[in-house]
């Protein structure tokens, strides 16, 4: 990975990385008004880390985003999602009934907005964590991806 002919690729990708992650967050939080949501944003964040792994090597990516962190992130995502359901139950509603989160009458949309935002965050964590775990499992199996393999 130290060969010089990748230098343009490395520099350009390094510039692209923050933009990719920012686009993922735009996708996440603009999902209420346009196309997008937790699934897409999770995949885009995972792809950003995968791009980093491709240009800097998998060990470097594993130091930046450790595998232990990604698999906990996947579990946390599912728990956040399920937790919203229990939050609604604690407030006296049914499981995942966002209207009950703040005990609102119909027509008030605060609970719906907050509820959907939190479960989309859960989906984001779950999907990005699971996808990165899958990528590390496959990429960690080969010692290093050599140039001739691409």
């Amino acid at each position: 990975m130290n060969s010089d002919h990748h230098v343009i690729l490395r520099v350009v990708s390094k510039m692209l990385l923050p933009i990719i992650v920012m686009f993922a967050f735009y996708t996440q939080f603009h999902g209420d008004f346009g196309p997008g949501g937790g699934f897409q944003a999770g995949i885009i964040i995972a792809v950003g880390v995968i791009l980093y792994a491709l240009i800097a090597g998998v060990p470097a990516a594993m130091r930046a985003v450790p595998p232990a962190f990604t698999r906990s992130l996947a579990a946390i995502g599912v728990m956040v999602y399920a937790g919203v359901g229990y939050w609604a139950m604690l407030k006296g509603g049914n499981y995942l009934e966002y209207q009950a989160l703040f005990n609102e009458p119909p027509g008030e949309h605060h609970g719906q907005h907050i509820g959907i935002m939190v479960i989309e965050l859960g989906v984001l964590f779950g999907v990005s964590g699971a996808m990165l775990t899958i990528f590390y499992a496959f990429a960690g199996r080969v010692a290093e991806i050599r140039d001739k393999d691409w």
Binding site: G92, G93, N94, E97, P105, P106, G107, E108
Partner: peptide, 21 residues
């Protein structure tokens, strides 16, 4: 407010119970 929108108004009136409608 929510009365401005006809649909909202209708649901507010006919809604009755606060949850699950």
């Amino acid at each position: 407010g929510h009365g401005a929108d006809a649909a909202h108004h209708a649901t507010g009136v006919t809604g009755g119970h606060a949850l699950g409608n």
